[in-house]
Design a protein around this nucleic acid. Structure first.
Lengths: 179, 179
DNA sequence: CAAAATATGTCAACATGACTGACATAAATA
DNA sequence: TATTTATGTCAGTCATGTTGACATATTTTG
């Protein structure tokens, strides 16, 4: 068997270095991630659709709730979408009273984003649906499951984003704790 | 602190039963899952966009590759979309020679789906990108990481789907092993 | 065998949420 | 003052999902 694997390795023409054959696909994780994520976002989807909101609204609401006073530009970076795309959903959330904008104190060009009590309530409701699923899973898996999941998911993030994401989560925890 | 939590529990008017307050949101896992999944599907997206394909094509190609000879109806069940929606992407994959349909032997109404060598190559290439990320993560996490991730992701799936998903993965492993 | 059910495909219309490109405004900064 | 920055907006396009209606071939059922 190892002979077969060795036979699949290739010698690069330019460098002469031996290139290992690509590792065989890890089908189980690939597929489990697909199904787990689908169910995970499916819970909020039901609630959102009753408000004629979609996942886009959920993401905006979530991050504004977690990072009160964040700039529009920060939100665009996190969501990785264009401002035109953000504009529509943000406008709907503002028009319907889930989010408000306030002029920046130091820099008056900025429109800092905050959730209203109504927005916070919705964000919390959606997060609780997802939390119920997570806690159900952790309950089945026993102690250490939370830490193991956190480590696995963190390691799956692009290494150049990873520190930023972890910092953002830590900062948000702090911000919400003061509320 | 436990006094505070206890104070949040409510007594249902109808049943008189004590309803526990919803557990506080598990923000870290909620956000890590968002970022991890975004990066996870981002790798294939780049390759696909060069072929003017999207995630929809990826999903179809993936499941057909993993389940050679599957029926259109099975694919619809897994993807959870309408046949009109599937029709478009499937047609493109067939027209461009990534997937073929064969009439069912027993039931000639069925159009059984298979990937071509070209389709298998693309599916494999995409899976290898995702596998590289997974293996990078497992490498950082040490032994047991694969098993821990599998258990976590499995527990996150709707319990009524879970057995079906696991059966499907096991069946697909068997099918591909024979190739 | 005729009738009903099943597997699939297709036409039309529409919604959502992305995109690009261009341009506007106000405020900060060089 | 001139430039850059933060934000917003208009217009058009694309990908991918939806509903509803209908067509065709084949299998199953009464």
């Amino acid at each position: 068997m190892s002979a077969k694997i060795a036979a699949l390795s290739e010698r690069s023409a330019e460098t002469g270095a031996t290139t290992a054959a690509p590792a065989p696909p890890i089908w189980d994780i690939i597929e489990l991630l697909f199904f787990a994520y689908r169910d995970f976002v499916g819970d909020p989807d039901e609630v959102l659709s009753k408000l004629t909101f979609g996942r886009a609204h959920h993401r905006v609401l979530h991050f504004v709730n977690r990072n009160p006073g964040m700039k529009v530009a920060d939100l665009l970076d996190i969501l990785n979408i264009t401002k035109q795309s953000l504009g529509r959903v943000l406008k709907q959330l503002i028009d319907q009273g889930f989010v408000v904008q306030k002029e920046g104190a130091q820099d008056r060009r900025q429109r800092l984003l905050f959730v209203t009590p109504k927005g916070e309530a919705l964000s919390l409701k959606l997060a609780q649906l997802q939390t119920a699923r997570i806690n159900r899973a952790f309950g089945e898996l026993g102690p250490g499951a939370h830490e193991a999941a956190r480590r696995f998911l963190t390691a799956m993030i692009d290494s150049d984003n990873r520190d930023g994401v972890l910092r953002q989560i830590a900062r948000a925890d702090h911000a919400k704790a003061q509320t």
